[in-house]
C-alpha cells in the first residue's frame, strides 16, 4: 500500500458486499461489545448489513467483500473505487474470486440452465473474479473468512497512519509457534499448511486436522514439493488438484499448481 491516511480526524469507512457468503463482514458484526468501541473511533458511512446506507459519499477506506460476478458488479466496483481513498479487499472472494470461482473452468451457461427454469433472467458473468482484476486494490486481507483481529489490526494501523502489515508467512510457522504436533509428519495427513498464508493461528492443526488452504497461498509457496509430498502419501492426481482447487482456486499459485498436476498426472 502506498497512500496511508495521515492522521485523519475520523476515519470514514464503508463496507461493501459483492458475491459472497457475508462471512467476512461478520468479522465486524461478531466483535461483540468491541463493535461499539470501534464505532466510537470510526465513522461507518456505508455498511448495508449493519444499517448505514450511503454508497455514494467519499470515504477514506472501503472494505470490499465478495467477488465480481455480475454485469452490475462491474460498474459498482468502479464507482466504489472512485469514491474511496483506500480500497481494501477482504476475504478469499475478494482476493481470489472465492469458492464460487470454481465455476470459472466450467460452462456457466449450462449450469444456469440446469438449475434455473428461466436462465435468461439470470445475469451472471462467466467467471467470478477478484476485485484486483477490475480496479486498483491498495491492500488485500486474505482468509475465508478474515478474522476480527485481522480487521481490527488493519483499522488500527490506518488510524495511526501507517500501512497495515501483510503476513504472507506460512501456516506451518504459526503451527510451530503454537507447539501443535504436525499432522502431516506424525499422522500422514496431507496438509496444505506448507503453502498456505498465515494469520488464522493454525486453527485446523489445533484440532488435529489438515489445513485446507482457506487463507490462500503464502509467499514463496513451494507447491511442487507439496504436490510431490501429497503424491507420496497416496493422493491421486485428481485429489491433489482438488486440494489446490477449493476455496482459493483462482489464486494464481494454486491455479498453476493444479494445472501442473493435471498435466503431469494425466488426470
Amino acid at each position: 500500500m502506498n497512500a496511508p491516511v495521515k492522521n485523519p480526524v475520523r476515519l470514514r469507512v464503508a463496507v461493501h458486499k459483492f458475491s459472497s457468503c457475508d462471512g467476512c463482514q461478520l468479522a465486524l458484526l461478531n466483535l461483540g461489545e468491541d463493535l461499539l468501541t470501534l464505532a466510537g473511533r470510526i465513522d461507518l458511512v456505508h455498511f448495508a448489513e449493519a444499517g448505514p446506507l450511503d454508497p455514494d459519499t467519499d470515504v477514506d477506506v472501503a472494505f470490499v467483500e465478495g467477488s465480481v460476478s455480475t454485469p452490475e458488479d462491474l460498474e459498482r466496483i468502479q464507482h466504489i473505487r472512485q469514491h474511496s481513498r483506500l480500497l481494501i479487499a477482504i476475504g478469499a472472494c475478494a482476493t481470489a474470486g472465492g469458492i464460487q470461482a470454481l465455476r470459472n473452468g466450467a460452462k456457466g451457461a449450462e449450469w444456469v440452465a440446469q438449475i434455473y427454469s428461466h436462465p435468461e433472467a439470470i445475469a451472471s458473468l462467466e467467471r467470478s473474479t477478484p476485485i484486483s482484476s477490475h480496479v486498483k486494490v491498495d491492500f488485500e486481507l486474505w482468509g475465508c473468512p478474515v478474522s476480527g483481529p485481522q480487521m481490527l489490526a488493519v483499522v488500527n494501523s490506518l488510524l495511526l497512519g501507517v500501512a497495515p502489515r501483510d503476513n504472507a508467512d506460512k501456516v506451518c510457522t504459526e503451527c510451530k509457534r503454537q507447539g501443535y504436533s504436525c499432522v502431516m509428519v506424525t499422522r500422514g495427513v496431507p496438509c496444505m499448511g506448507p503453502v498456505t498464508r498465515a494469520s488464522c493461528g493454525a486453527l485446523c492443526p489445533s484440532l488435529g486436522r489438515d489445513c485446507y488452504g482457506c487463507y490462500g497461498p503464502a509467499e514463496n509457496a513451494n507447491t511442487d514439493a507439496l504436490a510431490a509430498q501429497f503424491a507420496s502419501q497416496g493422493l491421486t492426481p485428481q485429489a491433489i488438484v482438488r486440494r489446490f482447487q477449493s476455496i482459493n482456486s483462482q489464486a494464481p499459485v494454486f491455479l498453476a499448481a493444479a494445472d501442473k498436476t493435471r498435466m503431469s498426472g494425466h488426470e
Binding site: P149, A153, V154, N156, S157, R165
Partner: peptide
C-alpha cells in the same frame, strides 16, 4: 522495553 501497537507491531 518492548512497545506494542495493536495490529501494527
Amino acid at each position: 522495553n518492548m512497545l506494542y501497537l495493536y495490529g501494527v507491531g
